[in-house]
Each structure stands twice: as C-alpha cells, then as structure tokens.
Amino acid sequence: MNIFVCVKQVPDTETKIIPTSDGSFIETASIKWIMNPYDEFAVEQALLVKAANPAANVTVIRVGSVKDTEALRTAMAMGADDAALVEAGDNLDSYSIAKALKGAIEKSGKKPDIVLAGKQAIDDDALQVPQILAEMLGLPSVSVIVGFELNGSTVKVKREIEGGALEVYEVATPVVLAANKGLNTPRYASLPGIMKAKKKPMAQYSLADVGVSDADRRVKYSGFKLPPEKPAGKKFDATDAAKQKEVVAQVVGLLRTEAKVL
C-alpha cells in the first residue's frame, strides 16, 4: 500500500509577519518554519495505517523552498519512510502546488492508494490544494475529516459539517483525504526518530521536473498588507449594583450595533 502525505511548511504561529516592500509576499528571511498543524494530523493518520499494515510505505511530499526542510524531516522523524521535495518559491498558488504534488507522486513511480493532506494551511488558508489535487489525479476526495477507518479497499470517513454535525462517507481507494483537527493526536518525533530520519531518502525535483511552469499560475499576489490595528477594547464599569442593568443594556446594544455579533 502506498500512502502519500502532502505537507506544507508554514510560518510558526508566533511569527511576526512583515509584508515585503513591494507587497508581493511576506519577508521570509527571519521566519521560523513549522509543519502546517493540520498536516500533522495527516501524517499521524498515515502512520496509524502503517502501524496496522506494516508493508505500507509512507511518502511525505512538499513543495517549497529548500532553505529549510524542517517539515519533511519532522515527518520522517515521526515515522514516514521517505520524502520528496519539489523546489519552489514559498509563494506559489494552490493550482501550481497541486500540480507539482501530482507530478511528484507520479515521479515516485508508485501508485497512490491513499493521499492525505491537511484541510488547509494556516498561512494563506486557501483550503484548495487537496481538492484540486484529487481532481487532477482523477480521484474522489473528502475534506475536513475527523474520523478514519480503513476496511480493505474502502475507507469510512467522518467529516465535520456546519453546526457540529457529522457526515459519514464510504469511499473506495485510491482516495484523497484532507484532515481536520480531532482526527487523531499527532505523536512527537522522538529523538531516536530524529536520528533515523537523517538516513531516510529524500528525492528532490525542480518545478520543471514535475511539469509546472509560470503558465500554471492562476493567482498572482500583489498587495500583502497587515490588517488594520484593532482599536483598544472598551471597558464598562459595573461595580455599582444600581447601575448594572443600565450597563448591561449598553453592552448588549453595542454588541448589536457596533460589533454586530448579536
């Protein structure tokens, strides 16, 4: 069984984001990169499948800069067998990324049985790559999954829908699945795992190798800007019991008219 897991490297959630002076992207030089948190669930799911099917092979693939390969190394330290990296800028659009991932899967020479990814990357929050990839591969896909059960060549998955309800799907493999938080609890990469990961193979391709060119770009980024600063919070003094009613009415009113959350 061949399992592919798509992982993206994203800025650590505590990173201070600074747009480049021309607004075309963000400054990447001082960013600390981490594996996209949703991808951790995807990696963990692949490893759980592998634990139950020791013959399974887990390949992690990533499209992005080579300066740091933290995400792939972490995934291999967690237990993935091998990795493939498509060297590219960190500001590709979803379409190009999906096409590059497809190319990398094909380059591996292995036919995928299960392709896993996170439901979204926390940098651009596009929520598109797994679905585009599935379409390109001609495979079914289910996104936002929180339950996974493999029975032979079908997978029963649960996906979260609005209001907290669940949909249950039974899908035949090969399939593309996009993981949500709650699917599992990702393991830590252990120290022996980190040592072993050094010796695991990592294939490296250029965008051209996997058949992606500038012409594939569907989205061009032109105006990265920081969001406007949040105005200071309002404080209401409700220590005087006689005035509490009035204050509550005032707060509720503002929540309706100003914050528009009620």
Binding site: E70, R73, T74, A77, Y188, A189, S190, L191, I194, M195, K198
Partner: peptide
C-alpha cells in the same frame, strides 16, 4: 547542527 536544531525543537515543544 541541523540535528541539534531538531532536537532543540522537540525538547522545547515538549516543555
């Protein structure tokens, strides 16, 4: 080394 950075990352995450 890159390995030491990873070790550090793991230990800090654990902490």
């Amino acid at each position: 080394t890159s390995e030491q950075r990873e070790i550090r990352e793991l230990a800090l995450k654990f902490a």
